[in-house]
């Protein structure tokens, strides 16, 4: 099977096209999808192919997300474009009290096969209201699946899996990775939800990460290797469900772990991972688990300050050395 170099954007468009061709109940609802192919051009070409199934709405995020819930309940497979992940706040009731709970509180009568697609992350100098990573809010709410891909091949495979899944999936795609390229095979593969990927094999420490930070961790691992530290990098890909088996296997081998994410360290997913590893694998650990994330402030605008607030490669290197005490 031929392999191409594709950007995350193009990989996403391929996934959408394949799934919309395969299943006529799949449709996309959101703002500015038709006129501009989405604000990042991520839907370009699709409105021409599926004119009835790409719906441009008024600026009404509450109604858009709620509409996704109602359509999913009545036989459709909606993909909701959240425009910016930050805007989930305008539809939190629809996500937290409706989407996440309807199946459960009605005793499993209904299924909600929907994808809420939310471009997140900083690095574009978009400042406080257009730069956040909020994935952990949704991991905390029972009833939602949370996907955080890093590589183009996963964007395609995981998005297809999310569309076919019968449960609500929040799909966070990092804005700074839209143009990130990587190999994508031409076959119509799926990447199942709930499976982590080992990106680098190492023996000295396990780095748990996801989304854009995976690339930062790879760079940090190269630097660490020069100092004689072999890091194993696990790209979690899905936070709910979580592939704890892969994490445990690695931690048992390396006996050390750090967690790296772009979201603020305080209250972030790293705390959950650190606690769970400590609870379940304490006897295997030879050192503390270190969390590396953004500083606890809203994202500042000025590029020098944004750079300062975000975790950088040197912070990961320092965090690993702290965990290893060397």
């Amino acid at each position: 099977m031929a392999v191409r170099e594709l950007s995350c954007s193009l990989a996403m468009a391929e996934a959408l096209k394949e799934e919309m061709e395969r299943d006529t109940t799949v449709f996309i609802i959101g703002e500015d999808l038709v006129s501009n192919g989405g604000i990042f051009g991520q839907f370009r070409g699709l409105p021409e192919l599926f004119p009835d199934r790409i719906i441009d709405t008024p600026i009404s995020e509450t109604a858009i997300v709620g509409a996704g819930v109602g359509a999913a309940l009545t036989g459709m497979r909606p993909i909701i474009d959240m425009h910016f992940a930050d805007f989930v706040t305008t539809a939190m009731d629809e996500i937290v009290n409706q989407m996440a709970k309807i199946r459960y509180m009605f005793g499993g009568q209904a299924k909600l096969p929907l994808v809420l697609w939310a471009p997140d992350g900083s690095g574009l100098n978009a400042a406080a209201q257009h730069s956040q990573c909020l994935e952990n809010w949704f991991v905390h709410v029972p009833g939602l699946k949370v996907v955080v891909p890093s590589e183009p091949a996963d964007v395609k495979g995981l998005l297809k899996a999310a569309i076919r899944d019968d449960d609500p999936v929040i799909f966070f795609q990092h804005k700074k990775l839209f143009n990130q390229t990587g190999p994508v095979t031409e076959d119509k593969y799926i990447v199942p939800l709930g499976k982590a990927a080992v990106r680098r094999v190492g023996t000295d420490i396990t780095i748990l990460t996801y989304s854009r930070m995976t690339y930062f961790c790879k760079e940090a691992a190269r630097e660490l290797a020069q100092k004689g530290i072999q890091a194993e990098i696990i790209d979690l890909r899905t936070l709910m469900p979580l592939d704890f088996a892969t994490i445990a296997e690695s931690v048992k081998k390396t006996r050390h772990a750090v967690v790296v994410h772009e979201a603020c360290t305080t209250g972030g997913f790293g705390g959950e991972l650190s606690a769970r590893i400590t609870e379940e694998l304490f006897e295997y650990l030879d050192g503390p688990i270190v969390r590396i994330g953004a500083r606890h402030v809203p994202m500042p605008f000025s590029p020098v300050m944004e750079h300062y607030v975000l975790p950088q490669v040197e912070d990961i290197v320092a965090g690993v050395r702290k965990a290893l005490r060397r």
């Binding site: 009835d52 509409a67 819930v69 109602g70 009545t74 009731d93």
Partner: peptide, 25 residues
């Protein structure tokens, strides 16, 4: 019966989606 909803005003957006679904189907 797509459910009683414990959140006041929670049903409006959901019914909008059922409306889209009816049209699309």
């Amino acid at each position: 019966i797509l459910g009683a909803n414990g959140v006041v005003g929670g049903g409006f957006p959901i019914m909008t989606g059922a409306g889209f679904s009816i049209k699309l189907r």
